[in-house]
C-alpha cells in the first residue's frame, strides 16, 4: 500500500515540495530488468530537519564504492526516464573528478531543496552516480525543449556548484537516453 505523505513536525521548517530519497546499485546479471528492481526508496521527507535526519544516516557519496547511485526526487516522481514527469524531460550532466562527489552533491541538493533554481515546477530531481573512474552529477527537469529553462538551470548549477572553470556540462534528453540506453 502507498505510504502516507510525510508532514513537517512541530517547529520544523517545511520544504516547498516533499521528496523521496532513493538508492540503487547495479546488479550482476539481467541488465534490462534490473534498473527498476534495484531502485530502493530510503525514505520521504517534508521538512529541512527530516531531510537531515535521513542524510546523516546514509554514507556520503564519496564513501560509496562500486556502481551506485543516490536519487533525490520530488515525491510522486520515480527516478526513471519513463515516469510521466520525466518522459518529455532531460538532464544536465556534470562529470566530476574523484574526490568531489560529496561536496558537489551536497551543494546541488541544498540548492534544489531551497528552491534556488527559480524555474517553477520544472525540477524533477537530482542524481549522484558513483562510477569507477569518475562520478556523475545530474539534475533532471520536466521539459527538455524549453531552452530558457534549461539555460537558467545551467547557470544556477554553475553558481551553486562552484566548479572549476573547465568543467564540461552536457544536456541530454531522456528520449535520447531511452534510444541509446546508455546514459553513462
Amino acid at each position: 500500500p502507498p505510504r502516507p505523505p510525510p508532514k513537517p513536525g512541530p517547529g520544523e521548517h517545511p520544504l516547498q515540495y516533499n521528496y523521496g530519497f532513493w538508492y540503487s546499485r547495479k546488479s550482476q546479471g539481467n541488465k534490462s530488468a534490473s534498473y527498476d528492481a534495484n531502485l530502493k526508496l530510503i525514505g520521504t521527507f517534508a521538512s529541512v530537519e527530516q531531510f537531515w535526519r535521513h542524510y546523516c544516516h546514509i554514507a556520503r557519496p564519496s564513501d560509496l564504492n562500486g556502481h551506485t547511485d543516490y536519487h533525490l526526487f520530488k515525491e510522486g516522481i520515480r527516478p526513471m526516464w519513463e515516469d510521466s514527469a520525466n518522459k518529455n524531460g532531460g538532464k544536465w550532466i556534470i562529470r566530476l573528478k574523484k574526490g568531489l562527489a560529496s561536496r558537489c552533491w551536497e551543494n546541488l541538493i541544498m540548492a534544489m531543496l531551497g528552491e534556488q533554481f527559480m524555474v517553477g515546477e520544472e525540477i524533477c530531481g537530482a542524481v549522484i552516480s558513483i562510477r569507477y573512474a569518475e562520478d556523475i552529477l545530474s539534475l533532471w527537469n520536466r521539459t527538455a525543449n524549453d531552452g530558457v529553462t534549461t539555460a537558467r538551470i545551467r547557470d544556477t548549477l554553475k553558481r551553486v556548484l562552484n566548479l572549476p572553470p573547465n568543467t564540461v556540462m552536457e544536456y541530454k534528453t531522456h528520449v535520447d537516453s531511452i534510444k541509446d540506453n546508455s546514459s553513462f
Binding site: V48, E49, W52, C56, N107, M110, L113, G114, E115
Partner: peptide, 21 residues
C-alpha cells in the same frame, strides 16, 4: 501561493538543530 526559499547557509545551520537528530 508564495514559494519557500532557503539559502544554503540556513539549511546547513538546521543540520545542527536537535530536531534534525
Amino acid at each position: 501561493g508564495s514559494r519557500i526559499f532557503y539559502e544554503r547557509n540556513f539549511l546547513m545551520q538546521c543540520r545542527n538543530s536537535p530536531l534534525a537528530k
